[in-house]
Amino acid sequence: MNTMVKHTFRTERCKGCGLCVSACSKHLLAISKETINKSGHYVAYMTNQEACTGCCNCALMCPDCVIRIEKE
């Protein structure tokens, strides 16, 4: 069983650039088509937390430090 990986998105900082989406080798992240933050950006979210390997590539490529990653 994979170790549990938990992503927390500070959505108020997200600018919806999608660099995390293109960095994820397992294509687990997406930009929401519904949720807009206060700045008017569609925000990134995790589509399948269980499948995440915790490689942190999404957080490495995020220009706005939106993603916090925890492992158990």
């Binding site: 650039c17 995020c62 706005d64 990653i69 492992k71 158990e72």
Partner: peptide, 28 residues
Amino acid sequence: MIVFDKPRSLADVSTSYCPGCTHGIIHR
């Protein structure tokens, strides 16, 4: 255990950079 988070030396504010600008990565 937290494996990735915003560094302490980076202020907790929204930057003035455009979406997708890599200045943010270099700041981090």
